[in-house]
Nucleic acid binder design. Structure first.
Lengths: 144, 144
DNA sequence: TATTGTTATACTCTATAACTATA
DNA sequence: TATAGTTATAGAGTATAACAATA
């Protein structure tokens, strides 16, 4: 693996520091005060994937299986996901989101955007364009 | 405040989700196993600012004052920062980084880059260019 | 009175280790 | 034997509330 150029190194440092700080601020901007960031993220994943086993969710969210057990149980208790037996493998379970979760995600979009808009609204056109172009790349990076 | 366009909304959602997941992965990539992400971030801030009071650090890192008290105490115990009395105000203190901290940051850069390089190395040229262009914007966003 | 920083305490999230059930 | 999920437990990091010292 070759060394990064100096500019790349600076970009990497900026990225790391910014991601850590932004995440701390976003944690405080819970749409529903009773939902943790990971719970929100799991619901988002389910909204995209439709359904997943607890193990798949743990891998996708980069969390250990016991943590996902707890998260799924909390979400089920709040009526936001349903757990069903796996059709082929009786060890596994299938997690799906409820209509209530879908409505919650929809309702929350306004509030979530309101916060991020206060931040991105202070960027100029060029800066926002750069960030917007990078958003899918960041998402890919988080999934690698 | 005007509504965001649909594309902006998608970018905002991608941003939020990616930042939360990346932060979880970065947390595991501690250069020094004994330094938490926030401790690292504080050292980075001090490297840029030179000196700051605990209150200033708490605001910059978006952490409550008691948390910063603890973080600064831990860093001092590790010989990475020095605490001096404030020249004008005897309630406040001044935090500065030690030479040891500077050396540690320098030494750690290689390892930190190695991890991020494994991720960004899987991006193509175009994706990496987009991410690199957005890095300073993300940093600005975290500071707003 | 207001502000800076600290102490005491509790909570949330996550991890590791050990276990159960199924493949 | 290996894998999916769970239970029990511990640890890290942060917050809130109450307090001390100084402005």
């Amino acid at each position: 693996m070759p060394d990064l150029s100096q500019g790349d190194e600076a970009a990497v440092n900026a990225l790391r520091s910014a991601v850590m700080r932004l995440s701390r601020r976003l944690k405080h901007q819970r749409v529903d005060e009773s939902l943790s960031p990971t719970e929100m993220s799991v619901l988002g994943t389910l909204a995209r994937c439709g359904r997943a086993t607890p193990g798949e969710l743990a891998r996708k969210e980069h969390v250990q299986p016991p943590s996902m057990t707890r998260i799924v149980a909390l979400l089920e208790g709040k009526g936001l996901v349903r757990l069903e037996p796996h059709p082929d493998d009786r060890r596994q379970k299938v997690v799906t989101q409820t209509e209530q979760a879908e409505a919650m995600l929809e309702e929350s979009r306004r509030r979530r955007n309101a916060f991020l808009a206060t931040l991105t609204g202070q960027l100029d056109e060029d800066e926002w364009a750069k960030l917007r172009a990078a958003a899918p790349v960041l998402e890919k990076l988080a999934h690698i």
